[in-house]
Nucleic acid binder design. Structure first.
Lengths: 220, 220
DNA sequence: TTATTGATTTAGCCTTGGCTAAAAATAAAA
DNA sequence: TTTTATTTTTAGCCAAGGCTAAATCAATAA
């Protein structure tokens, strides 16, 4: 049983909306996420229900099934692998890749993805720091925490930002921090919560607690 | 003015059917090429005519316009660049790439193609020996040369024979050479001018200098 | 010149994935 | 408990790309 491109996109949206909570996802939420109308969503939910990738009870929203979760994770895997390709191999900036990956993720060829994965050296995170599921849909996500939550002397790697406004990204770029950077906490100032961070074992960076709260890292 | 995936595929088919001859392409020919029905083709020709990429006169077939030719060549360029990527970077066999490239060629991103071209080092031929149009749609003419003129380790594709007598073609068929075959020169014997040729990456062929002088190939 | 044949187009229908407007069901407030 | 507000579904329509069957045009043969 195959899914169309539109169906794959809906399923991915439902998967994302389901993350965290255990409650059903509402038709309205899906419509907002997909930038479409609730009426269109109702039709699609019926189709996805028929295909067993979601459990759909009229008027009560949907829950994604195990099969659906597996499908969604495959699509997410493809999306994120393509993002790595675009950034690592084709020199795209990490904030330029989403649209293109959105198209590439629907190419149907298991061999292609297998080979791409190998070619990229089996990456575990995409350029935004989001984990890449393996071919069975397993995500080995190390817990992400804000820099502000880390202790002095802990090391890690920047994997994402909470606030991805242009202003903030520009700031990060200016001071020399970036997704993927290796960092170590050198000091935390009790007084104002500001921090001193070692970047790539050479550059020392001072940041306010507001900035430190907006940068997510994995510990190593 | 953008073309849908279906329109791009029709236009590509019409371009290929136009190659060589100057006569109009018939609805039936397009239907055969697209593996669809003439009735469906009529509708599509009207649409492509409206978009000015073909000149369509009811009952008299179509001619591709300059704009249409440019569009078709862009699609062909994308297709062939992706084929090079799949073979050179992802280790696909040259006869496994067509289907996947058929999907990849419709990804919309000029930047992607520009970068891919650079990443592949501006290849001039795809893995089948077909030329890759540049970003303005210019196609470099394929220099044909006799096998006897090629050097050891050069690769290419058989594109024609000088002597097309039945006897010679029968001989070619018997030894497993054919128009379109991918070949690589393994050895040239100084003594008698005979050659050792690898055909389709698997079969080794010995041929006299008379035979090698009668087979034309393009280098890749 | 007319009749016939073969190619082509038109008419009408199907599916997918959108939409709006109206109806219906649920949830919240009185 | 009944009314009201909100959410969701249904009904009916649209465009893209397919299809079949029927009509029409162009080219050929008589």
């Amino acid at each position: 049983m195959t899914l169309t491109t539109a169906e794959e996109n809906y399923l991915k949206a439902i998967y994302h909306l389901s993350e965290g909570g255990t409650k059903s996802v509402s038709t309205n939420d899906v419509a907002a996420e997909m930038k479409t109308k609730p009426a269109s969503v109702s039709d699609m939910l019926r189709k996805l229900g028929d295909k067993q990738v979601i459990e759909y009870r009229k008027y009560y929203g949907v829950n994604i099934t195990e099969e659906g979760k597996k499908r969604a994770l495959q699509t997410i895997r493809k999306h994120r692998l393509w993002e790595v390709f675009l950034v690592d191999k084709l020199q795209f900036a990490w904030d330029e890749v989403h649209e293109v990956a959105e198209e590439l993720e629907h190419i149907q060829s298991p061999l292609l993805i297998q080979r791409l994965d190998a070619y990229l050296n089996y990456p575990k995170f995409d350029p935004h720091g989001d984990p890449i599921p393996d071919e069975y849909g397993d995500v080995r996500a190390r817990p992400r925490l804000a820099l502000i939550e880390m202790e002095v002397d802990q090391s890690g790697q920047i994997v994402a930002v909470k606030d991805s406004s242009a202003a903030f990204l520009k700031y990060l770029d200016k001071v020399g921090a970036y997704i993927g950077a290796r960092i170590k906490i050198l000091d935390k100032v009790e007084f104002d919560g500001s921090m001193e961070i070692l970047v790539d074992q050479k550059k020392t960076l001072f940041m306010s607690k507001d900035v430190a709260a907006n940068i997510l890292a994995i510990q190593s």
